[in-house]
Design a binder for these strands. Structure first.
Lengths: 243, 243
DNA sequence: CCGACTTTGTGCATGTGTTCACAAGGGCGT
DNA sequence: ACGCCCTTGTGAACACATGCACAAAGTCGG
């Protein structure tokens, strides 16, 4: 195989949509490996991952030419290639800020430490929480963000605080050197260029579900399209000046 | 995953990307309203929501013509319109299956009940958990999924079980009549057409962050791209037959 | 009543992502 | 050795999303 067929320098230029699916493929591959399957076709892998097979092939083609025509992909080999591409062959220490219900759930989450990630510190601003032990991690004061991040070389931070504290925590993480943030707080974080933020938001997901659920429900009601612009409220201030 | 018709034909189809942003706008609007702001321009609202103003205007234009040229949008009015579009003017009872760390965090999550959604039931299969009370909800046996869903007319289910139980729980929810599922378990759920599934997955998000973090780190290393296709493993079986 | 000013709503160009369909490539039976 | 059959990898068409730039439409001061 050629050194780098499609991607010029290293692993640059992988579409974002593809990156978002690689973890799904990886998980699916692990499941196949656990079942003792050594080789898999794009068709089968795609089905197991819940995507179109052409999409899967195109996604994988961005990593290189790792399949064998007429046969499929070697599961173990592909696991390694995808892992490497995602940066999971190295260890990522992670700091979790916020030891409330969510932070505790995250710290206890097994899949966290499983592959590549490791809870390096668990912080909270609440004095009553500091000093307790959760999932084997002693909760430390949020005051030590800077020290913890610096001393352990942490580049990934997870924000599991109330919304009101999130931006402040974020600022401190960034200042301390964190460049990747996973935000569970329901706020839009403001970060300087070069810092990568992803959000996980329960209520947004529920609202998207509600939208589709409502649409289904409305469609089921025949005739009168209630979905038209509402006549319940007039457009405010529209006729304020008049005559 | 879920079946999503590419282009909703009959009714006025709001683009999926827009739907995904509406909850963000809504939250931003609430924040503005709390600060006593009655009117907002697309520029200001977009900045607060972290998006481009043209995008915001185009998004809102899909709902109707609710702004006033030369002035902006009336906050309260827009809150109502967006809420209505998302289906939040009605109440959505939600069943949470799984009362582990995550399920508990979800049940305790304040923003859950705040607008439109209500925890109608909290279920678990663990006998030791059944009967306990979490955030004011008595945990009931997972055996009663069908009965709970039917009796309360629940159409939204949240899966917060271990991965191994998720598909089974999903099947039972769907059979019972749930058509919208929010899945926290790290598995790809298989559902019939007409059922909408969204997933929230910590490890996928972390892996995406790791990808970008790695890319930043590699770029910082000059010259020899260690990131080239690995020479650590040969492509398996590639040279198996050879002369 | 009018004209200057502000901001929305949108046509259009560009960019990104998805899907089809098929040629190229490789294994395997004979 | 050879040809059949299978599956990958990808060109090309299509669908969707984004962002610019500006005309339309409204407000407000005089």
């Amino acid at each position: 195989m050629s050194r780098r067929p499609a991607s010029p320098s290293g692993s640059q230029g992988i579409p974002e949509a593809t990156v978002a699916r690689l973890p799904v493929y990886l998980r699916t591959l692990y499941a196949l490996a656990d079942r003792g399957i050594a080789t898999v076709s794009s068709e089968d892998l795609a089905a197991a991952a819940g995507v179109n097979s052409a999409k899967l092939r195109k996604d994988l083609s961005h990593l290189g030419s790792y399949g064998t025509r007429g046969v499929g992909y070697d599961v173990e080999y592909l696991v390694y290639q995808v892992s490497r591409e995602l940066g999971l062959t190295q260890d990522w220490p992670v700091v979790i800020v916020g030891a409330g219900n969510l932070g505790r759930a995250l710290a206890n989450y097994g899949g966290f430490a499983s592959r590549g990630f490791r809870v390096a510190a668990l912080l909270d601003s609440e004095p009553t929480a500091v000093g307790t032990t959760i999932a084997g991690h002693e909760v430390r004061s949020a005051d030590s963000i800077e020290q913890v991040v610096a001393s352990q070389g942490i580049s990934i931070g997870v924000i599991a605080t109330p919304a009101s504290a999130a931006q402040d925590v974020c600022d401190r993480l960034v200042t301390a050197g964190v460049t990747s943030i996973l935000n569970f707080a329901p706020v839009v974080l403001n970060v300087p260029a070069g810092v990568d933020v992803r959000k996980v938001d329960l209520s947004i997901e529920l609202q998207i579900l509600a939208f589709h659920a409502q649409r289904r429900a409305v469609i089921r009601v025949p005739g009168n399209g209630v979905s038209g612009p509402g006549q319940r409220w007039g457009k405010p201030e529209a006729q304020a000046v008049g005559t």
